[in-house]
Amino acid sequence: MADEPRRIITADASKLGVGQNIGFVEKLIHESAAAKQILKSDNPEARAFQEKAIMHLDEARAAEKQGNAEAVAKALNKAKLAIFMGMRLVGGKVVKDKKQENYNKKRHSLESLLAAHKRIRKENESGQDSRDAEVETHTQKRMQEAQAYYDKGELIKAGDVLNNAYLSLKLSLVKLRDGKTLVRSLHFETREDEYRYELRRNDTHNMLINTVLKKKREDPRLGKLMDIPLKEADKLRTEAEQQAGSENYEAAIKTLEESTKHIIRAIRMAGIFIPG
């Protein structure tokens, strides 16, 4: 991105009829956070733009007295553009902060991607390709290079180096994974893990009742009917929590599954069929 201030090209605001409020533009020029920053800064150019904006604002006021709406709009637009130019001149810190933030985010991204690349390369069943390992070394070198630029304050160059490194690493990672299907099977280390899973499944179905079916449940008759299985579900859930409390997860899981079934029954009563 070019570092010099951009020329602001503007649509003809007098035709658009937007932002034509003298009071608002006055506030923008004198009271806004950015306007105050111009006042605080020792930047004579920015102050000059602010003075120019005030001049255009006076023109707008004069035009308003004469009842010339078109001239008001034109003058206000000039005032806005002038104050924006001034603001841009004192915005240097903002830009620098953002570029630093961008760099650090990108660096973090690259680190995550690199970790993923290392892991996937080792998992790869089709054998090791020495070129894949080379990409990782290359990435690390580029990161050091970028950091050197960053330390020298050359933020744009630092960012570009990271971007290029990211792209080649991504290319390599895509090559390792493209065209595959991986199955994450449902497997629980412990009974407690399975219990936690069932708890969340129960929460999920309860949430459907409270969101999608909220309106239906507010209906007194259908609501009453749905209450029957829902009360049972609540009761079973409490029972399951007690069973889990005494570490009887085996039973707690079964009880929770029953509870979820009752919620599903209520959901189906409301006319929405979901698989169990």
């Binding site: 290319l171 994974r177 994450r184 069932e198 169990g276």
Partner: peptide
């Protein structure tokens, strides 16, 4: 640069 990788996640119950 897209990547064609599918992750199948098993769920409990009769939900696909």
């Amino acid at each position: 640069l897209s990547m064609d990788l599918v992750i199948v996640m098993e769920v409990k119950g009769s939900m696909p």
